[in-house]
Design a protein around this nucleic acid. Sequence first.
DNA 1: CGAGTTTGACCTGCGC
DNA 2: GCGCAGGTCAAACTCG
Length: 323
Amino acid sequence: MDYSSAAAYDTSLDLNTRPLRLFDDSPPIKKEVHSKILMDFGSQLSANEESGPLVEELHRVSAENKKLTEMLTVMGESYNALRSQLLEYMSKNPEKELSPISKKRKSESSNNNNNTSANNILNGINNGNSESSSSDGESCKKPREETIKAKVYRSYVRTEPSDTTSLVVKDGYQWRKYGQKVTRDNPCPRAYFKCSFAPSCPVKKKVQRSVEDQSILVATYEGEHNHTHPSQLEASPGSNRCMTLGTVPCSTSLGSSGPTITLDLTKSKSNTSDTKSPKPRTETPEVRKFLVEQMASSLTKDPNFTKALAAAISGRILQQNTY
DNA sequence: CGAGTTTGACCTGCGC
DNA sequence: GCGCAGGTCAAACTCG
């Protein structure tokens, strides 16, 4: 694959890390790397061949990328402001709901669309790629199981639009499907999975296509895994690989449906460490910086991620060429 | 043959 | 109490 040609395009994968602004004070690694690639590529180009139009295109795309980055930064700041307002509000009014959600069970399915007004805003900013809902709307679920206290979070995975039947979200864990149901507010069936990696693992997963965009799979996880991540036990390379990037769980999959990179940004810490407290992030700037560095080094060192990145970039290039 | 999936039946909670 | 809807069970089925 010709990686260098990819650099002339917008290679910034929308991994949704910036909008979430988990690491506010972190150095803009992606931007630096990106512009370095662009610079290297640009100098190579001008030195090796007089491809003026290409250089022009390079500059144009570079400027566009910069503009988009700025927009993302602004969005991220808005998100942060809203988020802090929300947290502030919630800490002041812990007993109040943000919106008059009825005690109806339907809140579970409806929180796809109309959870809370504040969450709606956050989701909008977040673009719905990956979003935390640990302050979930499922708390009014039936109290039959102790999972009522289990953490609920959700991840969004974009799939090939043509693939409207598969309800498989590859997150590295082993899941056993135990049921499927068509729910009222979504014509697409919802699939129920249990973690089959460890027999005693209480984690359940519900996967359903989004009503608005059926190419998006909404995976709702309930509970916490009581075992280590399978990829940590068997680090065998394969078409699917899961890894934990520092503290950000992430999975990449290179299936026939194209590369999918899922950053589980709903968990800012590792599975084992965040089982207790869903409290807001309190990392110091130093910690954040460390996390970012760790994440970046994990990314650059992992050959599979490089592969996935290359595949994603080529996919994007093809996509752009069709416009 | 075992593991995983499918699917209809059943259970449970909630609103009326 | 009844009906509705979400969640779960388990027998039948499929696949490697």
